[in-house]
């Protein structure tokens, strides 16, 4: 992984890092990929990928309203909100 690839990866993950930290981050990631890459030796072309251990169908429920009103509780958890909204910095110039 080079510095340009890491910069792109950091952007995709919405995480900041200073350029002087890049070599250390790259070393840590490559170290993990060394462990992961052991599985590349296995020929598993006959197997289907498995994304859920029980391969269940989803539980569904009726889409109905209820009388719960947690608006205040939810808004109170934001560090910046007013009566009805979550506040964020300006998005569109």
């Amino acid at each position: 992984m080079d510095k340009i690839e890491l910069k792109n990866l950091l952007f995709l993950a919405r995480i900041n890092a200073k350029e002087e930290e890049y070599p250390e981050i790259i070393e840590k990631l490559e170290n993990t990929f060394e462990l992961i890459d052991e599985m590349q030796e296995l020929d598993l072309s006959d197997l289907k990928p498995l994304n859920n251990p029980l391969e269940l169908s989803n539980v569904s429920r009726e889409d109905k309203g209820n009388n719960r009103n947690n608006k205040k509780k939810f808004l109170d958890n934001s560090s910046e909100s007013d009566e009805d909204y979550f506040n964020v910095p300006k998005i569109i110039e």
Partner: peptide, 16 residues
């Protein structure tokens, strides 16, 4: 494909 799909195939192998 190389990582995520291969890992899910290993997962299938372990389950089988």
């Amino acid at each position: 494909d190389a990582y995520y799909l291969q890992a899910q195939k290993v997962r299938r192998m372990i389950k089988v």
